[in-house]
């Protein structure tokens, strides 16, 4: 019986490992229409917006660590503790790369371009694929982008390459 179980489970485990390693090896990004190496950052940068403790809030981690040739993911998370009954789930969020001409180290961030609204649950948030980090990005490169929540505000965080 043990042998039978082993016969059934070992190939299944092997298949699972193969699928996982394939995922880390890369996949075809629909967003960028090319093969990428994976997703970064490992835990998506969370954009929190809405109302919390009677205050309007817009919060994004200032620096996201990304890797070259990966999909850059951001997660939308709303706070709906509004005393005026405002539901921020329907608020439009736009992510746009900033032109860093004149900057000493900032790179062209035009590849960062996405928009959407929160559609997930409070627990898992909603993932936005902001774009694909250029293949030739090297450690230390950084990309500035705007996070705009319509009728709420905007923040200027950055993505920094760590290879």
């Amino acid at each position: 019986m043990k042998r039978l179980l082993a016969l059934v489970f070992v190939p299944m485990l092997a298949a699972g490992c193969a699928a996982t390693s394939m995922n880390s090896d890369g996949f075809h990004s629909k967003k960028c229409n090319r093969q990428v190496d994976g997703i970064s950052p490992p835990s998506p940068t969370v954009i929190t917006y809405g109302e919390k403790k009677k205050k309007k809030i817009l919060e994004v981690k200032t620096k996201s660590n990304v890797k070259a040739n990966t999909e850059f993911h951001l997660k939308l998370k709303t706070r709906n503790d509004s005393q005026y009954g405002v539901n921020y789930d329907s608020y439009d969020v736009t992510i746009k790369g900033v032109d860093t001409k004149g900057s000493t180290t900032g790179k062209d961030a035009s590849w960062i371009d996405a928009s959407g609204t929160y559609t997930g649950t409070a627990a898992n948030g909603h993932i936005l694929v902001a774009g694909c980090v250029p293949k030739d990005a090297v450690e230390g490169d950084f990309y500035l982008f705007n996070v705009t929540v319509t009728n709420l505000g905007h923040l200027d965080p950055r993505a920094e390459v760590i290879n």
Partner: peptide
Amino acid sequence: FIYGEGKMLMIPI
């Protein structure tokens, strides 16, 4: 108005 790195807070009205 509370503000800092990647963070802003203020009463809505």
